[in-house]
Design a protein around this nucleic acid. Sequence first.
DNA 1: CAGGATCCTAGAGGATACTG
DNA 2: CAGTATCCTCTAGGATCCTG
Lengths: 113, 113
Amino acid sequence: MNTMIHTRECPIETVINVLGGKWKPMIYWHLIESTKRFSDLERLIPAVSQKMLTQHLRDLEKEGLIVRTIHPVVPPKVEYALSDYGKTLIPVLEVMCAWGENHNERKSEESAS
Amino acid sequence: MNTMIHTRECPIETVINVLGGKWKPMIYWHLIESTKRFSDLERLIPAVSQKMLTQHLRDLEKEGLIVRTIHPVVPPKVEYALSDYGKTLIPVLEVMCAWGENHNERKSEESAS
DNA sequence: CAGGATCCTAGAGGATACTG
DNA sequence: CAGTATCCTCTAGGATCCTG
């Protein structure tokens, strides 16, 4: 495989596409902590619409980052968890998170001066 | 302006917002290599429109990531370079890039099977 | 409970023309 | 050369209603 970055789709865009949905980082973030049900995520992220929550979960599942488990009970019980592969994103998120926090502080200071 | 909104915005979203424009990662990526003129970037990123190139450059400048230097000559000469602060993003990009490349390969294999 | 199906809007981005 | 200024398109996302 060619590792000449410029000739291929920028891998950074890949990451942004994977996490780029409005609520995806937050969804992912909550799943790092533990497995969650659909209604858990709705409660944890009150502003998200059902439609987008569903759609983002499907996207993340399609990328192999999360696993959707349907328990055949009544009422329905569906659980979402990070896949082993999905966990490989955690260190990436941590690095991003650290920079993002610093950047937010920087902007706060600058608007306070 | 105060920072009353201390809802602890997810720092990951901060990174995504900073790099989230359609061409921002690519612009940034080219500037890592060296200082570039506006026309250089147009040539390096043929698909970008003038409008978006200008707009994204302004955004990146506003975030303090790049520096815009106007040389008072005729014809105009404007150069864009990473700021020292902007360079702090490089390690973050490298981590993202590594994961993104791996993810692209993974998806290639899966669609080839 | 965990969604699917519809309809609708805002804003990111594109196309084109013009200019100091 | 390095942009503005307009106008236009397209889609991510929101709101609402319905169901196995």
